[in-house]
Nucleic acid binder design. Sequence first.
DNA 1: TCGCTCCGTGGGACCGCTCCCACGCGGCAT
DNA 2: ATGCCGCGTGGGAGCGGTCCCACGGAGCGA
Lengths: 349, 349
Amino acid sequence: MSPAEPPQPPRTAEARRPTLNAVAARAGVGRGTVSRVINGSPKVSDRSRAAVERAIAELGYVPNRAARSLATRRTDAVALVVPDAENRLFSEPYFSGIIRGVSAGLADAGMQLLVVLTRDDKEHGRLAAYLAAQRVDGVLMMAVHGDDTLPDRLDELAVPTVLAGRRGDRERLGHVRADNRGGARLAVRHLLAGGRRFIGTITGPLDMEVARARLDGYHEALREAGAPVEEDLIAGGDFTEEGGRAAMRELLRRRPDLDAVFAASDVMASGAVQELRAAGRRIPRDVALVGFDDSIVARHVDPPLTSVRQPLEEMGRAMAGLLLEEIAHRGTGRRGVVLPTELVVRESA
Amino acid sequence: MSPAEPPQPPRTAEARRPTLNAVAARAGVGRGTVSRVINGSPKVSDRSRAAVERAIAELGYVPNRAARSLATRRTDAVALVVPDAENRLFSEPYFSGIIRGVSAGLADAGMQLLVVLTRDDKEHGRLAAYLAAQRVDGVLMMAVHGDDTLPDRLDELAVPTVLAGRRGDRERLGHVRADNRGGARLAVRHLLAGGRRFIGTITGPLDMEVARARLDGYHEALREAGAPVEEDLIAGGDFTEEGGRAAMRELLRRRPDLDAVFAASDVMASGAVQELRAAGRRIPRDVALVGFDDSIVARHVDPPLTSVRQPLEEMGRAMAGLLLEEIAHRGTGRRGVVLPTELVVRESA
DNA sequence: TCGCTCCGTGGGACCGCTCCCACGCGGCAT
DNA sequence: ATGCCGCGTGGGAGCGGTCCCACGGAGCGA
């Protein structure tokens, strides 16, 4: 009564998906041969290969990751660890930009991306063991604080790891970062070129390498222009808007004569804008302002901010690349990659 | 010569991690018993349980996911699928907010989160088979376009699926959404309460349910106030800034007399701000403006935008919850959850 | 013709876990 | 004392791949 079943792939997940065995049977070859075809081994005759490929197509076969992983001791998956506390601070394109690049870089290699948001640093303890045991092939870490122990833990456990940014000058682990110093230099040079004389800066928290690098760039640009670096033109922020406001207030108090500010993040710059306006300074007429990150905020603040752009997507791609390299050949991926930054000129400077 | 090795967990991933077998041997029990302890079966004597737990602690044992997954046909992982094209459009807190909630909701259940960014809709074809074959236990989907076939495909394959938002009124699949209609109503009521008479709206692309819902809310609020709904007060946007500008221009052309605008997204609202300013209208004096999303943009536009907030993190949590339910008991998670929105009043209206 | 390679091949053993069956043993009713 | 029940328990049989060893046959030189 029942019509002949066409050899379609099963419609539901309940109906067991075809296994490598089934493919072998249908193609009239052994399991080994099917496995070889799937993994692209050259030691297969054209005849067998064709038969196997047909069978695979007919059955809609897709290899089972768990089984493969069990046998190979690889997972073909990497974890992206994002400390949640930081996440909130991120100038918004940051997270999405990086993750987009990472995802693209991994997809090309058929790797899966596991995203792990950690709620607090305490979790990092368990996390190391967890990641090692789950046999994620590697780990990507965003926003590493200098005192985070996770990278070292992973290193001890010999888990390939790549960081977004570095913890200090002598980062042993593979990492990718933007040329923060260079970007800051661009920003300050731009202000100098605009004829500004008293250029202040609002820094990020100096226990983060990014913040230090941006401050260094500020110094360098002034120095190379022969301008003096004055301590009271430097105010500390924390990458938040409120921090930016406070720092700007402080700068205005200390140096009513300043005519430009380089803020180490757009969000802080946006705080600075509010404070400048409150103080009756016009931007850029009285005080020119440059931010960092080229975030959405930069485009929407009034006036739109001149800002330093980092190539986020490329950074993510590079992280993925470095990690894959390290996974394939231990030791080769442990380099620092620096990507160029770029000044996006808008109306604030 | 070599000092006695203390029974520490191995320091490197190369050194094979202890297996369940090792734990059994050390605890002096059978594999079955260890398995029972790990999985919290009650049918274990206190004596055995204690012995096993000690052995686990001493060896630093963590079960191998691949092996477990192979045996159970579960993966303890779910995928979050994000169409990248949409992603770019997202008002920025959206993606991070949802993912944070999802992550939290899953972590509590010990589930892993796989993030899949799709580059174009074509990929969705292969993706369905892929997801089913990888035996992800379930799938979360963001930003579903009405014409996306992936949800139906997954449904056919009997893969538990939960959507962020719905495709239409009669969404069969489980989904979580904000009360977009209610939010829009709040916004327009607020404008009415402020004494505005001619309230325009800039909509999103009407093939997206969110956009339609927000437009509906606009209609409702006018109707309940006994105000006429005038077609020429409605302009179509596409959730982009440029779209917002174009729509605003159009509205001003058609109705120079309008005194308020409800934009279906902050980004479009920000475009509208520029256009209004160009036209010499003061905000909110001449034209009041309300956005949607309560994104960072809203806080940084000048003047800061009154906007409708959706509880993103809770939405993510709810999605995770629904999916877990559906995975545990097929059929129970296929509901629509609606979370309340809230009006955040700032200076633009 | 008879080895000897060498290539392609089949299939056993294993990866580390869960599932489930069968077994021993103490306690209870008969 | 005998049977029966039921609890804990051990361990075999998978789950679906990969790895590798051994084997048959074609091709070649002697």
